[in-house]
Write a protein that binds this DNA or RNA. Structure first.
Length: 641
DNA sequence: GTTGGGAGAATTTTT
DNA sequence: TTCTCCCAAC
């Protein structure tokens, strides 16, 4: 039996070994939240709860994986049968079994953002005569998403909005309806559908809900502050039979409200689950007292939250630095100097992170680091799975494995000379909106439909599809991808891109993600839900000897000894765009708080007061309100480089 | 219908 | 500077 009190502090221990019943754990930053959840899982299994009867919902697949790996060290490999992952991941898993009940094929496709936008674009063109004067596809997408995540109708949401130019609400509604119809027709779901349709599944088929609610004796939810209405409802339903729900979160760290996250979920949890136990974790093990003092000062500007104060357990260190600078160049220089100092003090490159509000804030620094040949990795805006070359590869695998839909089919056809959207659509229709590569007639039919101009280029692909079926590559994705690359795609990349070699290397890396003997289709079902932080190589990247560049959002849940924050200026952080869309600045302030609390030993805030705009103009910026709110005595302010 | 060139706009966060 | 869209030539 494990001696829990010796491994955990009293609050952590109380949470990990709590008796059955609803439980809310308010875990401030750096207080051992992950540790507590991991031990909770271990405690439950050690006390006779079979792992397959535990559901662990996390914000990223990466977080789930890490917790399970740690729990496995405590209780062994049986833990693998536990259900875990993001909401989207788990919903996908459930829907793969029951989609036909909702009129979707079992092999339904998941529309990623690009596919979603292109479908919306088609719907716009089919609806309005002059798309220029109409809402942009991104705007329509965000309205559709908002409606889905807040459980309202599109018409309701758009009805509340105001527009500079008059636009036809009726047309917008038609576009949204066509979009829904288009998804239906293709048997596809977008990201929000995964949540919405799982909820509908549970509503319309209580017997299915019952099956899962009985199965999961314990439901554990990490990062509960970032759940939206649908997610909270799903959790409530799944925990409705056994009532063993453990929600872990920190209302100070709710930073995804633009995606529908509603921290009222966490605030109102005690009312929704009467009799729930509340445990607060406030002992911070991560940061120096000086950093925590700044963190506490940052968040003090927000109201209406659970009272929590970070209490230091570590001994004194150094005050965080505010570097008052001229411009981006000076900022880059300070970062470089800071990195060199840290390395001289004995830190490794992977101990250092540079954080910023938006991807483009890191552009100048990235060029400097590249020029100086310093090792760095950047979690960029486009994840590896979002890149065109990986999508091409995935689309081709779909075609090979007989799970192609109009989107993946069109993608592959688009790689051929002389075939564009229209021709691809026509071919798909002629194929009967389906393609089963196992049937030789189907393959022959497709071959015969390819226009003469593309025949020569197509032939090796056709042969590859045949080989995929005949040589049993459906359980050897690695080999299928490698051959695709060697036989055909590499040459295509060379023709189409100037950075073809980098892309080819990505595809080769992608091939390595397939496990031997795992059905390729299983992997394909998941691939749309994977992000760059979830990639198999992400762990390797984080362990690599390199400085980490990341947005604050993507840094959630991580920590580094040395943290440098860029552009702590008004309009940058807080972001002007975000402020214009929100009632107040509280979410931006929480984001700033998240950034500050990533630092363990050393924190530097950069405040460059000039910014060069793309058109060459210079913009003068004021220091961020979030820096000004910090009492001066808590910071070591320095001027110049 | 497709493709490539050229002009123009422009930067929030992501499952 | 990088993506996106539009138009004109095949």
């Amino acid at each position: 039996m494990t001696d829990w009190p010796s491994l955990l502090n009293p609050e952590q221990c109380a949470a990990a070994t709590a008796p059955d019943g609803p439980l809310l754990v308010l875990a401030a930053a750096g207080t051992g939240k992950t540790r507590t959840l991991t031990y909770r899982v271990a405690y439950l299994t050690e006390n006779g709860v079979p792992p397959e009867r535990i559901l662990l919902l996390t914000f990223t697949n990466r977080a789930a994986k890490e917790m399970l790996e740690r729990a496995a060290q405590l209780v062994g490999p049986a833990i693998d049968s536990l259900w875990s992952g993001t909401f989207h991941h788990v919903c996908n898993r459930i829907l793969r079994r029951h989609a036909p009940l909702l009129g979707y094929p079992q092999s339904f496709a998941i529309l990623d953002r690009d596919a979603q936008l292109s479908l919306i674009n088609r719907c716009i063109k089919a609806t309005v005569s002059d798309p220029k004067t109409f809402l942009k596809k991104e705007v329509i997408a965000s309205i559709i998403g908002k409606a889905a995540n807040t459980r309202r109708t599109f018409a309701d949401v758009i009805g509340e909005m105001t527009f500079r130019e008059p636009i036809s609400i009726a047309d917008a509604v038609t576009v949204a309806e066509r979009y829904e119809a288009g998804k239906r027709e293709a048997g596809a779901m977008d990201f929000d559908d995964l949540l919405v349709l799982t909820l509908r599944l549970f509503d319309e088929h209580p017997e299915v809900l019952r099956q899962y609610a009985e199965r999961f004796r314990h439901v554990l939810v990490d990062e509960y502050q970032d759940t939206n209405l649908i997610q909270a409802r799903l959790v409530d339903l799944l925990a409705s039979v056994h009532r063993n729900i453990m929600a872990v979160g920190d209302d100070f760290q709710c930073i995804y409200s633009w995606r529908g996250a509603d921290f009222r979920n966490i605030m109102e949890f005690p009312e929704r689950w009467p009799g729930c136990r509340i445990i607060k974790l406030e002992r911070n093990y991560r940061s120096t007292p000086e950093i925590l003092a700044v963190a506490n000062a940052c968040i003090a500007g927000n109201r209406g939250q659970f009272e929590k104060t970070l209490r230091a357990t570590r001994q004194g260190g150094r005050k965080p630095t505010a570097a008052m600078l001229q411009d981006a160049d000076a900022q880059s220089q300070v970062v470089v100097r800071k990195i060199r100092e840290a390395l001289a003090k004995g830190y490794c490159e992977k101990d250092i992170a540079v954080l910023y509000r938006s991807h483009f804030h890191a552009m100048e620094l990235e060029m400097t680091l590249k020029r100086l040949r310093m090792n760095y990795v950047i979690t960029s805006g486009v994840g590896i799975f979002d890149s065109a070359h990986i999508k091409d590869t995935v689309a081709f695998l779909r075609l090979c494995s007989g799970t192609a839909d109009i989107f993946s089919f069109g993608r592959v056809m688009g790689l051929l000379p002389g075939i564009g959207e229209k021709t691809a659509d026509r071919l798909w229709t002629k194929l009967g909106s389906a393609f089963d590569p196992r049937r030789p007639e189907a393959r022959a039919k497709l071959d015969s439909l390819i226009p003469a101009k593309a025949q020569a280029v197509w032939a090796p692909l056709s042969e590859l599809i045949r080989a995929y079926v005949d040589e049993g590559l459906e359980t050897n994705g690695n080999r299928a991808v490698t051959r695709f690359l060697d036989v055909w795609y590499d040459a295509y990349l060379q023709r189409a891109y100037d950075n073809a070699d980098d892309r080819a290397a990505d595809v080769a890396e992608f091939a390595a993600q397939f496990r031997r003997n795992e059905p390729v289709t299983e992997f394909l079902y998941e691939v749309a839900l994977m992000t760059n932080v979830d990639a198999e190589s992400a762990q390797a990247v984080r362990d690599a000897p390199a400085i980490h560049l990341s947005t604050v959002h993507q840094a959630k849940g991580l920590e580094w000894p040395v943290v440098i924050m860029l552009w702590c200026m008004e309009d940058m952080f807080p972001s002007a765009k975000a402020l214009s869309e929100k009632i107040d600045d509280s979410e931006e302030r929480r984001l700033f708080y998240v950034a500050v609390t990533r630092a363990k030993d050393d924190l530097t805030l950069c405040l460059p007061n000039r910014r060069r705009m793309p058109n060459g103009a210079t913009l003068y910026l004021k220091p961020s309100r979030f820096v000004k709110e910090i009492p001066a005595r808590l910071l070591n302010t320095r001027y110049g480089i």
